[in-house]
Design a protein around this nucleic acid. Sequence first.
RNA 1: CGGGGUGUGGCUCAGGUGGUAGAGCGCUUGCUUCGGGAGCAAGAGGCCGGAGGUUCAAGUCCUCUCACUCCGACCA
Length: 479
Amino acid sequence: MAKQKEKLVAEITAMETDFTQWYTDVVLKAELIDYSAVKGCMILRPYGFAIWENIQSDLDRRFKDTGHENVAMPMFIPESLLQKEKDHVEGFAPEVAWVTHGGSEALAERLCIRPTSETLFCDHYAKIIQSWRDLPKLYNQWVSVVRWEKTTRPFLRSTEFYWQEGHTAHATEAEAREETLRMLEVYADFYRDALAIPVIRGRKTESEKFAGAEETYTVEAMMHDGKALQSATSHYFGDGFAKAFEIQYSDRNNQLQYVHQTSWGLSTRSIGALIMVHGDDSGLVLPPRIAPIQVMIVPVAMHKDGVLEKARAMKDRLGRSLRVRLDDSDRMPGWKFSEYEMKGVPLRLEIGPRDLAAGQCVAVRRDTGEKTVLPLDQLEQSVRDLLDDIHDNLYAKALKRMNERIWSAAGWDEFSRIIAEKPGFIRAPWCGNEACEAKIKEETGATSRCIPFDQPEQNGSCVCCGKPAVTDVIWGKAY
RNA sequence: CGGGGUGUGGCUCAGGUGGUAGAGCGCUUGCUUCGGGAGCAAGAGGCCGGAGGUUCAAGUCCUCUCACUCCGACCA
C-alpha cells in the first residue's frame, strides 16, 4: 500500500484539523450540493444527484429482484390520518411541517407534509386489501420527506431529504418478520457490494426504536472519525398499524384477520456515509460502482499531433461498458488531476506524446495514488480489473479500520475512559435496563447503536450497573 | 432550543479613531503554454445581508431584524 500521499488540494481542511469543516469543504468543493434559500434544505447539484441516481438504480434493482413494486403517495397527510396511530404521531409530531392555507383560504383541516408515509400506505392498504389473495403487498416509493430539524447538515440531517420507503403488508407474523430481515440483508449487501462500506447488523433497543414499530433493525457504519451512522433501518410493525387503520383480510377459512406490516428505508444520508468512510484530505473517494464518472481521461499536451485523437478513441472504447469522461478543456493537466481527485473519480488515465509512441497510457488510482502503465491493446480488461481492485481495497480498508476500533470494556470506568479518549465503538454487555442505557447516554454521550446479531453465550455483567447482562450492545457516539 | 462566530464583486478576505470601496483567486478575450492547480496583456463585475436611527457625511457608530456557520440537548 502506498504511503499517505501529500495533500494536494489546498482548499480542503485536513481531517485531523477539523473533521466537521473537512466534511463541509468536501461536500461543497466536490460540487455535490449547494445551500438553498430555505434553511436546512440543500440543492443536489448534478454530481451529487448522479451519485444518488446510481444508488437508486442499484437498490431499485435489488427491490425488484425481491418482488417489490414502486408506487407514489401524495406528499400531504391530513392531520386526522396522521393521528390514527398513537405512538407514531407522538414520535413525529414535534418535527412536522404543516400546510394551513390553500391560496388565501384557511383549510378546514390542516395538512402535514409527510415526514414518512406509514399512515398513507395504511390508509390505502385498508381499501385495497380484502382477501388473503391480495397479500402480500410489497410496495416501495422513492420520494422526499420533510422533518423540521433544529440543526441540519448536508446529507446527514437536512430538513427535506430524499429516500426510499418500502411498506409491506403480509398475512402472517412470520412472513412479515422474514421480510423485515430480508430487507435488512438487502441493505447490508448493498452497502458492501455497491458502496464498499462494512456495516454492523443489529436490532435497536426499546428506546431507539422507530415510533410505532414492534422491532427496529439497523445497519450501522463507522465513519472516519469513529462516530456511528445509522445507515438504513427496517421495521417490523406487527399488527399495530393494521388495528389502528383496520387493515383486515378474509383468510382461507373466511375468518377476518389483521395484516402484519413492515417498513424499511435508506436515504441520501448514505451519501454522507460514502464521504465520511472513504474520503481523505484530498477530498472525495468514490467507490467505482456508484461513481458518476468511473474513469477520467486527461490528455497531456493535447495540442500535439495525435494526442487528442487517441484520447477520444480511448473514451469511445471504454465508454461502451463504463462511465467515462474525457476532459479536453484548455485547463492545465495538473489542474485536472487535482480537480478529479477532489471529486473522487476512482481512476484517471493520462495519455500524452510519450505514451503515444509506446502504445500505452498511465493509470492513476484515487484510493492509493498508485500509478501504473497500461498497454492500450488490453485497455478494457485492465481498467475493469483496476476498478474491481479499487472497490475491494476500499472495502478492506474500511473493514479493517472499523474492526480495529471496536473496543471492549469490562466496567464503567473503562467504558467512560475509552469513550472519552478513543474514537470508535464499544462492544459491551448490558443488563437490559433502560436506566443504564439512559445513564450511559447522559454521562458519556454514547448511545446504544444496536444489539448485534452475532451474540456470545452471555455470562458477562452490565457495563453500567454490574448486574448480570442479557446481551452485548454496540455503543458509540452517533451522527 | 441555549452558547459562540460571520455577513463587503462568483469565492476568500482587507478596509485603526466616520469623508463616498480594494486585493488575491475565479470569470471574459487574445497570444504563448501543457507528464501535479501555467505566463503575459487587455477587460467585465460591488445600491458593503436587510430596516430604522445619529451625523453636513455611515462597510465604519447605535438599535432592531434576517441568514449562514460552529459547539451542546432531540432525530434517518
